[in-house]
């Protein structure tokens, strides 16, 4: 059974249609990369998956059930910024999920349980290459290390799906390549289902198993909000023709011009 299913999903704000008629299903273990012009509803789609926004029409199903309408432990997230808690050290950030589970009132664990959580957290930090930085605060870590930490923090809860919202947008190119390797290896070793949003189309072309392009097939330059974005390309990554990237790039750029010059 599909882990995520969209059935005729719409999202509107007033008379602005953001997303229209989304139909797709995603199997467990897929790595979906989502690209598109800014203003084409990528972030709105992520908010629907996260549960901070409700769909106007249609259904969004997780394991065949409607998604809970608020964020919970079934979905992990890594944002571009502010993903980790800056008042906790690296290892405390990773322990947090377990602590919240073990003590429903104060979210603080003690004694044996705490030792176990710390041990698990250190292992997780090791696997993202942050072993030596376990007792550092986020402000002592570089941008790339903070994102590694955010991944570790999210993954230790073993979420059904992992959402990545332009997680590497603020990083230098070299660091970004390292992070790609890390995400791919974690995705393989932990058998994750990943949705990653990126504005870097080439990133979408070699990361993951499936590429979604969000674009507005109908676009009225006088009223860019009249029609919503749809998934205009749904491609398996790896066996695309050479011209595809160029043509996607052109279309997305055109939409971007219309949306961002008129707004």
């Amino acid at each position: 059974m599909a882990i995520i299913e969209m059935k005729n999903l719409w999202k509107e704000y007033g008379d602005q249609v953001v997303l229209e008629r989304l139909n797709a299903s995603v199997e467990e273990g897929e790595f979906v990369t989502i690209v598109g012009a800014s203003g084409c509803g990528k972030t709105t789609f992520l908010k629907l998956l996260l549960g901070t926004e409700d769909a106007t029409r249609g259904e969004l199903l997780l394991d065949g059930q409607p998604l809970p309408a608020e964020p919970d432990a079934s979905r992990g997230i890594v944002f571009q910024r502010y993903s980790v808690l800056n008042h906790l050290t690296a290892v405390e950030n990773v322990m947090l999920g377990g602590e919240l589970e073990s003590s429903r009132w104060f979210g603080i664990s003690v004694g044996k349980k705490r030792k176990q959580l710390r041990k698990d957290a250190l292992e997780m930090l090791e696997s993202v290459g942050l072993g030596p930085a376990a007792d550092k605060y986020p402000h002592e870590l570089s941008g790339g290390m903070q994102q590694r930490l955010a991944l570790a923090q999210a993954l230790i809860k073993r979420p059904r799906i992992l959402l990545l919202d332009e997680p590497f947008g603020a990083l230098d190119p070299g660091i970004r390549a390292d992070m790609h390797k890390l995400v791919l290896s974690l995705w393989k070793s932990q058998r994750l289902t990943v949705f990653m949003i990126t504005h870097d189309i080439t990133e979408g072309f070699y990361l993951g198993t499936r590429l979604w392009v969000f674009d507005k097939p109908r676009l009225d330059p006088q009223a860019p909000g009249a029609y919503g974005a749809r998934v205009t390309y749904d491609l398996p990554v790896g066996d695309c023709e050479n011209g595809t990237l160029t043509s996607i790039n052109q279309r997305v750029t055109r939409t971007s011009r219309v949306l961002n010059d008129t707004l």
Partner: peptide
């Protein structure tokens, strides 16, 4: 406090009270 952090807490399984004790209070 960034909305991202409050969402993050929820995705780590926190309830409202835990968001206060582990995020808002120390911050």
């Amino acid at each position: 406090i960034p909305a991202e952090q409050i969402i993050k807490m929820q995705t780590l399984g926190a309830n409202t009270w835990q968001i206060i004790t582990r995020l808002v209070w120390p911050q």
